[in-house]
Design a protein around this nucleic acid. Structure first.
Length: 894
RNA sequence: GGGCGAUUAACUCAGUGGUUAGAGUGCCACCUUCACACGGUGGAAGUCACAGGUUCGAAUCCCGUAUCGCCCACCA
């Protein structure tokens, strides 16, 4: 495979530092050209599908999107490499209010408005905006490397999805699950639309509680009511008290005079009233408060609307008509005060509802709206999770899901805006018949008249999003895609839309497809601002992922996000951390450069033909480590533990492959050609190829770039098989032996550093081993010890003369000496050993205490006890060696 | 009013019953050694918020306290 612009690809001599700028776009275009993202439908292979949480068509990529989509891309690339038919279905959401707001702002700038240009022109204008400026986030997702099947990109208002929406609406209506009625809903006076309960954000606000005297109608006194919204009193049609409240039992006449309006309203008895609150009397405004609405129903009270759709007082408010609700509040309070009817004003903290789109204070208002009766759907959705048809990760979210589903209230789905799916309902002007239909009717089905007018409301945006997992696959048609990819494998999303979206997809998916839409739901953390608030564009101090990608490269961002994914609820990306992982990318790059110098033009290795048993320790060791890492990465990804996978890979590449293995085999690589060198090259090549494949889902660009620099005819790494563990590569013996060798080398390096020996100076080392086997091991690896610790003269022996003037280091039961011919600072040496001794003693004491506790020995698993015994022996041996050495040093010191 | 989460190194965070609690960045010392200074080697740094409990064994499980934060909810 070659990238499209073939200017400088096959260059095997790589730049000294990884230059992501040259690489990312090149490979992304190549993947697109080769259609590597296209979903296959091979019946022989399992399917793996994800539908993208569709970003708003108005959206701009923020860190939350970057996280969400990186996590999805990791899974999709991983499963694709594992050979599955992978579909990652992309698309955007029409985002009713948000998009309408954008275009309305444009119109305002042109000194016009949607009302002026009319509905048809407005909707056309939004479509035009969408075609020209919408969906820039799609380009940004490509920049992030997302391997979506772009040929299947959908939009919640495209033809197919609109058809699905209409079908669902009609079916639910026919089933009696959609109804229209007059209820108190949340009204946004700025957006001029109803909002669902979920779309109202309650913010604690320091308000005031006004205590107002309502004179009794017979003039014998007054009742005091308390309210936070005095302006609504103009709409009061009763005062309520608790039926068992002694204080109100003997009211002479069951009526009060509503101040300012000067009209008589009844006193009703209702158990909803809290006797302890305020004076125990509650003003009842059925048209502007949900509870009051319910009370009104129970007592057959009139509904009096005193406000219009913009939050302005209407004619029913008498002399207050025309005032904005907040201005009216001031005026009402002033007038009450003047009339001596204001008993007191208390500071009062309470939750005030705000529109989640524009933050305007929401007004509960009486209105005719469409609702979905969700209770029966919710019951099915609960069952699906209870029975494990859908698993939620992390599991702790299940309870949140259940409790919301159990207390669910009917869903208000109508919105009084213009951008969205217009409700397919018509009213006959002649006979008043309500017609709900899949195809626009031309005449009344009841009376035959053809004066029909369609409902002007549109549906809540989440109504169409709720159908996303099946509408995007062609439903209501019976498509191949639906059969193949539904239910989808996993939904990856952030927990803040668990109710808005996930819960509703569950309900709709089960109801219309008969099966829950996902096998797994993985909820990840939310990126918040520094105050712990949800991030919003209007606030500053928000990290822009596009800037990050420009600065550090996409792979660095992706790897960082994967490493961050463990966090429970909040993520705040730190730039330092991204920089740290850019260093990791560069490290990988340079390890590859180095490897390439030595691999030369080797034929690509055949891992199956590798015989580890015939190889030297470094090779056996690195293959064992690689195998372990492979197992860890796969297990981690199987369980959505991205951070574990990232950490395992980071650790392996940097700490084991680069720091130890490459240094270890350098002598062999630089030596004269021979079978040893041949083996080293082969293993090196194998490890590099394997690790690139393991890393590819996380950091696709740099891995692809290196992949193509390797010798051999190469297709994209994207479709290489993902590595799997190989029993033949496992070797605990090699891991143990290498650990011993590393201990000795580290000890020597420690001595060098502590005694100030120049890095380029060679030293003499004497290693005293506890037994013959150890001695042979150390002697057998003297080439490595010489190279890695800069040792000139190395002696390994079981016992023998302890050198006179020598720095000492004890590694378990091995004593390491570096003779320094009179240069040894005995006091410093003694102090060092003494410190080591006390540390060792503390550990040994702990182990001794454990092992002398019969309860531990009896109760702990055998392998834990055995482990402690081994530790005891090692520590005791070390302590013995430390004691000996200190005694010897004291003698030498004189 | 319910529910949930967090509290671990200077900073940002991993670590959900069993080695001497880890990572990135930062810090100290030495090193421009032929892949990499976006580097190497060695090192310092933590009463795992506090107080109890369960257990042979607790950062990890349970109870409580404190601080911070989130979600849900019709006390005006």
């Amino acid at each position: 495979m070659q990238p499209s612009d073939t200017t400088e690809t096959a260059a095997k001599d790589l730049a000294k530092a990884y230059e992501f700028r040259d690489v990312e776009d090149k490979w992304y275009q190549a993947w697109l050209e080769h259609k590597n993202f296209r979903a296959g439908m091979d019946p022989e292979r399992p399917s793996y599908s994800i539908v993208i949480p569709p970003p708003n068509v108005t959206g701009v990529l923020h860190v939350g999107h970057a996280l969400n989509n990186t996590l999805q891309d990791v899974l999709i690339r991983f499963r694709r490499m594992q050979g599955m038919n992978t579909l990652w279905l992309p698309g955007t959401d029409h985002a009713g209010i948000a998009t309408q707001n954008v275009v309305e702002r444009q119109l305002a700038a042109e000194n016009t408005s949607r009302h002026e240009i009319g509905r048809r022109a407005f909707v056309e204008r939004v479509w035009k905006w969408k075609e020209e400026s919408g969906g820039q986030i799609i380009h940004q997702l490509k920049r992030l490397g997302c391997s979506c099947d772009w040929e299947r990109e959908r939009f919640t208002m495209d033809e197919g999805l609109s058809k699905a929406v209409r079908e669902v609406f009609c079916r639910l209506y026919d089933e009696g699950l959609i109804y229209r009625g007059d209820y108190i809903i949340n009204w946004c006076p700025r957006c001029h639309t109803a909002l669902a309960d979920l779309e109202v954000e309650h913010e604690p606000t320091d308000g005031k509680l006004y205590h107002i005297r309502y004179p009794l109608a017979d003039g014998s006194g007054h009742l005091v009511v308390a309210t936070t919204r005095p302006e609504t009193m103009l709409g009061d049609t009763a005062v309520a008290v608790h039926p068992e409240d002694e204080r109100f039992r003997d009211l002479p006449e069951k009526a009060v005079i509503l101040p300012l309006a000067n009209k008589k309203i009844p006193i009703v008895f209702d158990a909803h009233v809290e006797r302890e609150f305020g004076s125990g009397a509650l003003k009842v405004t059925p048209a502007h408060d949900l509870n009051d609405f319910e009370i009104g129903r129970r007592h057959d009270l009139p509904l009096l609307k005193v406000m219009d759709d913009s939050g302005t007082m209407n004619e029913a408010a008498g002399s207050y008509a025309g005032l904005d609700r907040f201005a009216c509040r001031k005026q009402v309070v002033a007038d009450l005060e003047a009339a001596g009817l204001l008993e007191k004003i208390e500071p009062h903290q309470h939750g005030v509802g705000h529109c989640y789109r524009c933050q305007t204070v929401v007004e509960p208002a009486l209105s005719k709206q469409w609702f979905v009766k969700v209770k029966p759907l919710a019951e099915e959705a609960i069952r699906a999770v209870e029975q494990g048809e859908t698993r939620i990760h992390p599991k702790s979210w299940e309870n949140t899901y259940y409790s919301w589903m159990r207390d669910i209230r009917d869903w208000c789905i109508s919105r009084q805006i213009w951008w969205g799916h217009q409700i397919p309902a018509w009213t006959c002007e002649a006979c008043g018949e309500l017609i709900v239909a899949r195809i626009d009717p031309t005449s009344c089905s009841k009376c035959g008249a053809n004066s029909l007018h369609q409902e002007t409301d549109v549906l809540d945006t989440w109504f169409s999003s709720a159908l996303w997992p099946f509408s995007t696959l062609g439903w209501p048609d019976d498509t191949k895609e639906l059969a193949f990819f539904y239910p989808t494998s996993v939904l990856v999303t952030s927990f803040d839309i668990l109710f808005f979206w996930v819960a509703r997809m569950m309900m709709m998916g089960i109801h219309f497809m008969g099966r829950a839409p996902f096998a797994d739901v993985y909820l990840h953390a939310l990126v918040r601002d520094k105050h712990g608030q949800k991030m919003s564009k209007s606030k500053g101090n928000v990290m822009d992922p596009l800037v990050v990608m420009d600065q550090y490269g996409t792979d660095a961002l992706r790897f960082t996000l994967a490493a961050f994914a463990a966090q429970g609820r909040d993520i705040r990306l730190s730039e330092e951390r991204i920089e740290g992982y850019r260093h990791f990318i560069n490290k990988l790059w340079n390890a590859a450069r180095f490897s390439l110098m030595h691999i030369g033009t080797c034929a690509p290795p055949e891992p199956d033909r590798l015989e580890p048993a015939a190889l030297d320790l470094p090779h056996r060791w690195i293959l064992a480590r690689l195998d372990r890492t492979t197992g860890e990465v796969i297990a981690a990804l199987d369980n959505f533990r991205y951070n574990d996978a990232a950490a395992a890979l980071y650790q392996f590449v940097w700490r084991e492959f680069c720091d130890w293995y490459l240094e270890w085999i350098k002598p062999e690589l630089y030596a004269e050609p021979g079978p040893g060198q041949e083996a080293a090259r082969t293993v090196l090549f194998t490890v590099l190829e394997t690790v690139l494949k393991l890393l590819h889902p996380f950091i696709p660009f740099v891995t692809e770039e290196i992949w193509h620099a390797l010798p051999g005819d190469r297709q994209t790494i994207m479709t290489e098989g993902y590595p799997a563990p190989r029993a033949a590569w496992q070797s605990e013996a090699a891991e143990k032996e290498a650990a011993l060798l590393m201990g000795v080398i580290t000890g020597l390096r420690n001595i060098r550093s502590e005694t100030g020996i120049h890095p380029s100076a060679e030293i003499t080392a004497i290693v005293h081993c506890p037994d013959q086997v150890t001695e042979e091991m150390v002697a057998g690896h003297q080439q490595a010890i010489r190279a890695l610790a800069k040792v000139g003269n190395l002696t390994a022996r079981v016992a023998g003369e302890r050198p006179k003037g020598a720095a000492t280091y004890i590694y378990n039961d091995i004593v390491i000496f570096v003779p320094l011919e009179g240069l040894v600072d005995f006091d410093a040496e003694l102090a060092k050993l003494d410190k080591e001794k006390s540390k060792t003693q503390v550990l040994l004491d702990k182990v001794n205490a454990k092992l002398s506790n019969p309860k531990f020995v009896d109760n702990a698993p055998a392998e834990v006890v055995a482990g402690e015994k081994e530790k005891q022996e090692t520590l005791a041996a070390k302590l013995g060696k430390l004691d000996e050495s200190m005694k010897r040093l004291a003698e030498l010191k004189g």
